[in-house]
Design a protein around this nucleic acid. Structure first.
Lengths: 231, 231
DNA sequence: CGACGTTTTGAATTGGTTCAAACTAAGTGG
DNA sequence: CCACTTAGTTTGAACCAATTCAAAACGTCG
C-alpha cells in the first residue's frame, strides 16, 4: 500500500491494529470457501494464494493471484457473501482483519479507507486486464502477460528483483489461470524457453528477455497502480 | 444502490448533491478515454455504455456493460489514471460527480462511502464472473450467461421485466464482450433462437426459457449483490 | 432508390483440446 | 542409501470449437 500513497505512522499503527493473530495455511488448502459470509477479511503476511471459482462441469478458474501484502477478500466487508473462494498455492501466513474493526476504521480514518478502497479497485483493474488478454490474445501472449504482471507485483512486494521471481504453482494451476489446458500451457512454455525468453526451475522464474515478453504480452503496468499518487 | 442497502433521505440528498449538470453522449461516442486522468467520475442517468480496452493488434475487449444507475469510472477517484475507456453503446445521458466532492463525502459520510465502495466491488465481481465464463465455458454458455446477467441488471435498474430487456448493441459488440468473432456470435445466437431460448429483434431481447438459459450459462446471480444487506 | 451498416451463410483453416502414455523429480519408508 | 510412490512435466496423434475470408441478404434511413 505504501507504494501507492504516503501512509503516516499513525495510519500504519491503525492498520496494524486491525490485524488479529496470524495463522498458517499449507499449500493446497482453502483460505476462504465460495459462499462464505466471513466476519473478517484476510491479509496475506507471506505466501502465494489465488482466488478461484468452480464451474458445474468440474472446471476451476483462478481469477487473481495474491502475494504478501494483499488482502484476499477485503470486498467481503461490503459484498457480505463470497462470490468465490481463496486457496493457498504455497504455504501461507495470514492474518484476519475483523469487519467490525474495518467498519469502525471507515468512520474514523477516511484517508486509510480510501487506501483500502484502492486495494479493491486495483483487484478490479487486474481482473479487467485478464479479461483483455483472455478475450484478445493467444496462449503465448497470455502467458507472457501473466509472467510480466507477476514479476511486477512480486517485485513491488519486495519478493523479487533482477527479473527473477518465485512462482510456486504447477502448470495445471497456470492453465486454470489462463483458461487453457495444462498440456497446452506446457507446449507454450517450452516454446518460450526455446526462444530463450523464460527460464523456470524449482519454483523460480527468470525473465531473460523482459522487452520481448512485454511486447509479446502487450504488457503495460499502469493498471497495477504501483506509482505513488495521493488519494 | 438502494437495492443493496437502505439509503436515508439525507444520504440521498448528499448523493444527488454530488452530481453536476447532465450531458448527452450519442451512441458510438467515447465517454472517457483510456489513459485519462479525470477530475470527476461519471454517473449514468440513462442509456447503455461499456468499458473497453484496445489491444496493439487492433482488437477491442469490452470488460463491462453499464446501464442507468451505474458509475462507469468511480474507481478513477483512487486509480487517478484510467486503465480503460468507456464508450456509449446507445445514446446516454450522464452526470459528473467531482472527485473533490466525492473525497469530501468520504470524510463526512462513511456509510455512503461504503455504499460507493460497494459499487466498485460489484464491478470487480462482475469482472471475475466474466473471467470464469471466458476461461471455462464455450460460446453458447458464455452468451447465455451474459444475457442472464444483463436481464438481472436491467431489471434491477427498472428497465426490464418479464424476461424482456433492451439490448442496444450489435453482434460485433457482443463478440467484443465475449472474446468471440461476430460471425461466431451470429451462429451461436441462431442456435439459441432455433432452440426457442431467445428472441432478439429491434434492440429488445426476450428470454423465452429462463431456466434453460440459467442452466446453460451456469448463471448464479449472487455476484451481482442485488439483495439488501446493511454495509 | 441507393447506400451503408448489420446479419447471415459457406468453405477452408487453425489454435487449442483430448486422451493416452512415457518420463522426471522429489519425497518416504524400510 | 536404495526401492517405491506420487505429483508433476513432457510428448504424440486425432479431433473439434472457433476463426478467417469472402460473399450474399437484409433493413433502414436519407
Amino acid at each position: 500500500m505504501s507504494r501507492r500513497d504516503v501512509i503516516s505512522a499513525a495510519e500504519r499503527d491503525a492498520l496494524m491494529g486491525l490485524l488479529g493473530p496470524i495463522r498458517t495455511v499449507p499449500a493446497g488448502r482453502p483460505i476462504v470457501e465460495p459462499g462464505d459470509r466471513p466476519s473478517f477479511s484476510t491479509f496475506v503476511v507471506s505466501g502465494f494464494c489465488a482466488r478461484f471459482s468452480l464451474t458445474p462441469n468440474g472446471g476451476r478458474q483462478l481469477t487473481e493471484i495474491n502475494v504478501a501484502g494483499d488482502f484476499v477478500d477485503l470486498h467481503s466487508l461490503l459484498m457480505r457473501q463470497m462470490d468465490h473462494g481463496v486457496v493457498a498455492l504455497a504455504d501461507c501466513v495470514i492474518a484476519p482483519a475483523a469487519h467490525d474493526a474495518l467498519r469502525r476504521l471507515t468512520e474514523t480514518h477516511p484517508h486509510l479507507t480510501r487506501l483500502l478502497w484502492l486495494e479493491t479497485v486495483v483487484d478490479g483493474a487486474i481482473h479487467r486486464q485478464w479479461l483483455v488478454t483472455m478475450g484478445q490474445q493467444n496462449a503465448a501472449s497470455r502467458l507472457a502477460h501473466l509472467l510480466c504482471e507477476l514479476y511486477c507485483r512480486t517485485e513491488a512486494a519486495g519478493l523479487a528483483s533482477d527479473h527473477r521471481f518465485p512462482l510456486p504453482m504447477t502448470q495445471a494451476d497456470l492453465g486454470d489461470v489462463l483458461g487453457l489446458t495444462q498440456v497446452h500451457i506446457n507446449r507454450v512454455l517450452m516454446e518460450l524457453r526455446r526462444q530463450g525468453l523464460v527460464e523456470w526451475k524449482a519454483g523460480q522464474v527468470t525473465l531473460n528477455d523482459w522487452d520481448a515478453l512485454v511486447k509479446l504480452g502487450a504488457f503495460d503496468p499502469t493498471y497495477l497502480r504501483l506509482q505513488s499518487d495521493p488519494v
